[in-house]
Computed example of a mutant assay.
Amino acid sequence: MAAVTGLFHDQESAERAYISATEAGYGANDINVIMSDETRERYYGEHATLETEVGNKAAEGAAVGGALGATAGAIAGAIAAVGTAIVLPGLGLVIAGPLAAGIAGAGAGGVTAGLVGALIGWGIPEDTLKKYEADVKEGGILIGLNPKSEDDARRFQNEWAKSEAVV
């Protein structure tokens, strides 16, 4: 089953999509969030990726979420969690979720092709990936996950499309 993705053009709709996925039983280790470093700083602050122990991820996410308020908390917790987020300064990207671990394992050489190279395994057509890459550079937030069922896939595609996401 192909990944379900949505490119959101504002923080609020991205947060709703992320929360919808968590309410459906998906966790931070299931949901990928990709944004530019500039977008992270604008919406979540310069120091959203914090240094803490991996065992304290949940508590840290809750603390950051409480500090930023309900609408900004879900994604902020994901990008603040050590082990589930990576900043790629050369590409200007912040990636949170299981994709971050894969990129970290591949090393710097694994991400030289940019977002398109990082997401090629998601089964998304390359022209769509190039559009996503351009939109992320322009301030969009890309959320993706591997759905557990066809019903979940349809649900997220429909919900995210209603939020005017590019799906």
Rank of each mutant, 00 (worst) to 15 (best):
I143E: 05
A72Y: 01
G73V: 04
A78K: 08
Q11V: 05
A3Y: 13
G65R: 04
F8L: 10
A153C: 03
I103K: 10
A76G: 05
D135G: 14
L119S: 09
I75G: 03
E12N: 11
V94D: 11
I124F: 11
N146F: 12
R16L: 11
T49S: 04
A161C: 04
I79P: 11
S149F: 10
V94K: 10
Q157A: 10
G73Q: 01
A101I: 09
A59I: 09
E159L: 15
L50E: 07
E41M: 02
E60I: 11
V94E: 11
L145V: 02
P147I: 01
E46P: 00
A67C: 07
A96S: 15
L91M: 14
G144S: 15
E164P: 00
D152T: 02
F8S: 04
G73H: 06
R155M: 12
V167S: 02
G139Q: 08
M35S: 07
T84R: 09
V166C: 01
A85R: 12
R154T: 13
L91R: 15
Q11N: 06
G69L: 03
E12F: 13
V111H: 11
P147Y: 01
L88H: 10
L7G: 03
D30F: 02
V166I: 14
R16V: 09
V54W: 06
T22L: 06
G61A: 12
S13E: 13
R154F: 09
T39G: 01
P147A: 00
S13P: 01
A62L: 08
G45C: 00
E164V: 02
A165H: 07
E138T: 12
G73S: 02
V87E: 14
P125I: 06
H9F: 15
V166F: 13
D10G: 13
I141K: 09
N29E: 06
K131I: 15
W122N: 04
A14M: 14
